[in-house]
Design a protein around this nucleic acid. Structure first.
Lengths: 344, 344
DNA sequence: TTGAAAGCGCTAACAA
DNA sequence: TTGTTAGCGCTTTCAA
């Protein structure tokens, strides 16, 4: 019986298989397979013939057949909310470096900050029987948690810290970031401190950052209700608009913590254009310490977060566990660092 | 015979299979398969039992088995030089949106601008029998070209324009960008015009851009040898250093075309810090029109390139061909646009 | 050093 | 409406 037509989505490539190579090389079926896997156990002349045929025909081993036998594929899904944020891209890049070096391929999944999508994505991706999984964030739907537990595969949650990680965990505490930034600004003498950002209610990490931030303000008897947020994706320009809105509504505001450096930079540029002095009139601090923060004039204060390193470490830990090696620490707090520059 | 142990890389998840589900649901083998594929052809009660078992066991269909039957997988490798460049990330994001919507998964490949790596990557990725392929650039090694021709699968080369594309092609002419920028600067009255960037000899697109740029200068009897380049990855700070080097070596230089906006911004910031007037003392123009270009004070002139749209279009064309639909235009020139702002 | 046979999980055809 | 059979491409074991 030929391949069922209904599954043949399209007139495809001439699927070269081992028998094809064998025919071409004038050798037996198994000889080809063996030449490819254990070249040593095949006569020199035979091997040369086989390799020649492989090359001529452009034979590429079919991962499906292998995967079906082994029950697992050298792929690692990386699930992030969006590619439209340099932080996740840096993570991805770091992880890719390490995974590629170990022969793993990345399957990309972007959830758009939607838990439903995350759930579907994970289910679909699990169908590839990946050896491991890299998952952004530590707050997932119950269904997702259950699925992941059932799958029982090596996995690393990253970008945030979990009390009870599903598998391994690499990140830092966003709540602590909020606290640290608030304390920093208070120490510097600011008293009317605002937060500006996006996804202030959707993204668990933002929520935690804001919670730590506001709690600290409250503990210091300072107003903590100055918040500007937007449902549109963050951008440099949005930062400017958010700052303008904030100052308009509450002229007393003297410092603003932005959800990331792009928005902080936009706020700074807006001030530059409108002649608002930074930090004299209003202080600005960003988040993530992207390169732009250290480059502007004046340079923007920020919070350094180790995202590339996080990617490398998460991948390294995952690889170790996939290979069955012991992993010393299953939960790593990478910390963060406040970078005090010219805008605070 | 059990699964061969040597292929079992590790103690893995308890691979739930259709027979497992069938046993749990107390129904036959095929009934489960059918419930999943054609729910209509199964009795209501049976179906409920099956779905219940599927849920309880956390069954996920094994893509390998399907792939083995159909000979192709709903995955699309996207091969780019690096994730460390916003342009490729935007493309990736655009492509991912479209591909995800059509049920395709992205397999990520980063070549690091290395043709050898590109070749290996493509070979490995072809083993997944992807239905299609997205490939950055149009300049590939002969071996790569041959492999791709043999594979005979739908593919789109993007980011640049090819005379003779391997498959489909979406991009714009980097040579023309170079010409246009040179003409623009000449028209504005600049006479000592430099290029600054990275990968000036490695990346075919840079090479073409510079060629068009220098040819135009030459045609206008202007010096065309002012070039500053670096082998390190581009960055905002590098832009500053490159500009400083250029002005030091050739004080006559009155305009610089940067290989991207990050470097242009770095150059601008450097000028701001050192009190060099832009554009009076030196004009600056970037490339790609990233958001930063329009946001700085003064705003940076640049060349707008349609990278997200390119990703969406490339993916759309690919999907069409993968589904066997006709594709009107197999080679699309998306063009570019010079954005004249305050730095030129 | 090479060949033969079995089976990984699933689905399409056919039969009941 | 459900069960049976065969086979996708490959690797492993066992036999020659």
């Amino acid at each position: 019986m030929a391949t069922p037509r209904s599954l043949r989505h399209h007139a495809a490539n001439p699927r070269v298989t081992i028998p094809d190579v064998a025919a071409r090389a004038g050798v037996g079926w198994m000889t080809v397979s063996r030449t490819l896997r254990q070249p040593g156990s095949v006569a020199e002349a035979t091997r040369r013939k086989v390799l020649k045929a492989v090359k001529e025909l452009g034979y590429v081993p079919n991962h499906f057949a292998r995967g079906l036998l082994s029950g697992a594929a050298p792929v690692v899904p990386v699930i992030i909310p969006t590619l439209d944020h340099p932080v996740y891209v840096s993570f991805l890049d770091g992880a890719n470096q390490v995974l590629a070096r170990h022969g793993y391929q990345i399957l990309l999944g972007a959830t758009g900050y939607d838990r439903g999508v995350e759930e579907q994505l994970i289910t679909a991706l699990l169908g590839w029987r990946p050896e491991g999984l890299l998952l952004a964030g530590v707050d997932h739907s119950p269904a997702t948690r259950k699925r992941l537990k059932q799958a029982r595969l090596p996995l690393v949650e990253f970008m945030d810290l979990a009390e009870k990680p599903l598998g391994m965990n690499v990140g830092f505490s966003h709540f602590d970031v909020g606290k640290a930034v608030a304390n920093h600004l208070i120490q510097k003498g600011y008293r009317h401190i605002a937060y500006a950002g996006t996804l202030t209610e959707t993204d668990a990490k933002s929520v935690k950052r804001i919670a730590g931030f506001q709690q600290t303000l409250r503990e210091n008897k300072l107003p903590c209700k100055y918040v500007a947020s937007s449902t549109e994706p963050f951008s440099i320009h949005l930062g400017g608009r958010l700052l303008e809105k904030l100052l308009e509504r509450n002229p007393k505001i003297d410092a603003v913590f932005f959800g990331n450096d792009d928005m902080a930079a936009g706020a700074l540029f807006s001030c530059l254009r409108r002649g608002i002095r930074v930090p004299e009139r209003v202080a600005i601090i960003g988040f993530n310490d992207q390169e732009i923060a250290g480059a502007t004039v004046p340079a923007i204060s920020s919070v350094a977060t180790p995202r590339r390193k996080m990617g490398e470490l998460a991948a390294t830990m995952l690889v170790a566990q996939m290979k069955g090696e012991p992993v010393a620490q299953r939960r790593v707090d990478l910390g963060f660092q406040i970078i005090d520059r010219e805008t605070t």
